[in-house]
Design a protein around this nucleic acid. Structure first.
Length: 224
DNA sequence: GCGACAG
DNA sequence: ATCTTGTCGC
């Protein structure tokens, strides 16, 4: 598939300025058609961090069966700085997305969407650059406050910051720590929660994320 | 100044 | 994220 892009050779200050500008392009309401293919995106590292490895898997939403999987590797060019994660991971993820022959209708990203200091986490960045609806699925919190999430599967409580709801703390399974869901692009929070649950079967994380994670980090020499 | 801090 | 073995609990 084709993707938009921009310079990635930026200083942290320039990156922050770009986030403030691109944040204005995020669409926070449902603007997605029928969702048939859902993609999962994840990133891993090789050579002690020297190489960034991005994996994208495309599943058929109906039965969560694997339709396509691609991997891309690039030299790591930006450090990990809380709030600027996308500048470290996007270039390689975009390279992987360009290899896809099937265009997904929705992107589930590993990290935050608008639940970010400048409301522009990696899910927003990937959504805006691809033009695809996207959702941020993070394992831990970056910013915002919240109460306890309900115990039952599918239960959630708002993640708030400065008076606004920026996401949901969602219990995907009974007795497991909740995940942090937030809007990436072209989708509402309620719809995002429904798709995340639709992609989650017997584990805490959605199948898209699990398969992408396996491809991004577990194929070189780890688990048997 | 101090504490927080996606992956 | 990554470096790393066994171990506690459902």
């Amino acid at each position: 598939m084709l993707v938009r892009t921009h310079s990635w050779n930026l200083s942290p200050k320039e990156a922050v300025a770009l986030q403030r500008r691109l944040a204005g392009q995020v669409i926070t309401e449902d603007r997605l058609g029928r969702v048939r293919f859902v993609a999962g995106v994840d990133v891993g590292f090789e050579e002690q961090g020297k190489i960034t490895r991005a994996a994208v898997v495309v599943l058929q939403l109906a039965d969560l069966s694997l339709v396509e999987q691609v991997v891309a590797r690039r030299p790591t060019h930006f450090p990990y700085i809380p709030g600027l994660l996308s500048f470290r991971e996007c270039p390689t993820v975009l390279a992987a997305l360009e290899k896809l022959t099937v265009t997904p209708n929705l992107l589930l990203c590993d990290g935050q969407g608008i639940a970010h200091p400048r409301r522009f986490g990696i899910a927003c960045h990937l959504g805006v650059l691809t033009g695809l609806p996207s959702i941020g699925v993070a394992k831990t919190r970056l910013t915002g406050q919240h109460g306890p999430a309900p115990d039952e599967r599918g239960g959630w409580t708002p993640l708030a910051d400065k008076g606004e709801t920026i996401g949901a703390v969602l219990r995907t399974r009974l007795k497991v720590r909740p995940v942090f869901i937030s809007i990436g692009h072209r989708i509402s929070l309620l719809t995002a929660i429904q798709y995340v649950m639709a992609c989650t079967t017997r584990y805490r994380l959605p199948e898209t994320t699990r398969l992408a994670d396996k491809l991004a980090s577990g194929s070189k020499k780890k688990r048997a």
